[in-house]
């Protein structure tokens, strides 16, 4: 039985190795979380949420304008991206399995979902910044909308496909036109799932930095105007992180904590909505 024993030992060793991999993966997560929370908390204050950033080398001020700016950019991005993304998803879900156009759209969306965010920034630059000759919140929003669209379309498709065909038939058999059956019967049945997907995609774009650097640029003052440059949490954080001033670096850690809280809340909201859907399915 010696062979069997050594085989079992090898099995145990291999699995120990996989456990070690999990530990290796968790070390950066814990290190990052600990540093952002401890250093960020040290720089946290009401001023962070209500004031504009102070000048380099001066008092730190806050990132209130950037928090609002992130909200503005994300709002416009969602306004542009959600109808198109969800619409494309419903289009895919309502098409037949052997529809060539739909297969092509599906494949394009899959591929597009992996396009680097920075490329979306160049597109927004070419479409909005160059013709308007001005960096603007809207340009940033266009970049983020491009980023959220493909994944949202694919998720929506899957969710709508999961709605039983019997519901659609039930609607059509009542003499309800197709578009109303889709909008009022099928989509509501998938609504909780779609809401989850929307929240997750908003959480994702709220953390984007690269494409905003040369679209919405930055703004050290309060501004909510869509046609003006605007400060955002991520760009502010980037500028502070690479600055040589300790006060600004401190502000970067506090901003990172704020950003994680915002993204975390969005993720949590998504989970709550998803959980409620699971409960509803039992009732």
């Amino acid at each position: 039985m010696k062979a069997a024993l050594s085989r079992r030992v090898r099995s145990a060793a291999a699995f120990l190795l996989t456990a070690l991999c999990v530990v290796i993966a968790l070390v950066p997560l814990l290190s990052l979380a600990w540093l952002v929370v401890s250093r960020g908390w040290a720089g946290f204050s009401w001023a962070l949420l209500t004031e504009v950033p102070g000048p380099p080398g001066g008092a730190p001020g806050g990132v209130g304008n950037a928090l609002a700016g992130t909200g503005v950019v994300v709002f416009w991005a969602a306004l542009l991206g959600l109808p198109l993304g969800i619409g494309a998803g419903v289009f895919l879900a309502e098409s037949d399995h052997d529809d060539r156009l739909a297969s092509a759209v599906r494949f394009t969306a899959d591929v597009l979902a992996g396009v680097p965010s920075i490329v979306a920034g160049i597109v927004a630059y070419g479409l909005i910044v160059a013709p308007m000759k001005r960096f603007s919140a809207l340009a940033g929003a266009v970049a983020l909308a491009v980023l959220m669209l493909p994944a949202l379309a694919r998720t929506t498709e899957e969710l709508v496909r999961r709605v039983p065909g019997a519901l659609r038939e039930g609607g059509l058999a009542l003499g309800i036109p197709q578009w109303k059956t889709s909008l009022r019967i099928v989509l509501p049945a998938a609504a909780a799932g779609i809401a989850t997907a929307v929240l997750l995609s908003i959480a994702r774009i709220a953390g984007e930095t690269g494409p905003l650097l040369f679209t919405s640029l930055n703004n050290a003052h309060w501004s909510l105007a869509p046609d003006q440059p605007i400060g955002t949490l991520t760009v502010q954080l980037y500028n502070d992180a690479i600055s040589p001033y300790p006060a600004m670096q401190q502000r970067a850690w506090a901003t990172a904590l704020l950003l994680l809280v915002v993204v975390g809340l969005l993720n949590m909201a998504a989970r709550v909505v998803a959980g409620r859907r699971a409960e509803g399915a039992h009732g």
Binding site: P164, A166, G170, A173, G175, A189, A191
Partner: peptide, 20 residues
């Protein structure tokens, strides 16, 4: 056909009430 289906109603094998 949409108007026709209001005159000719249908009930399916499995009950399919609208869940929302």
């Amino acid at each position: 056909p949409v108007a026709l289906r209001r005159r000719v109603g249908m009930v399916f094998q499995r009950p399919n009430p609208f869940p929302t």
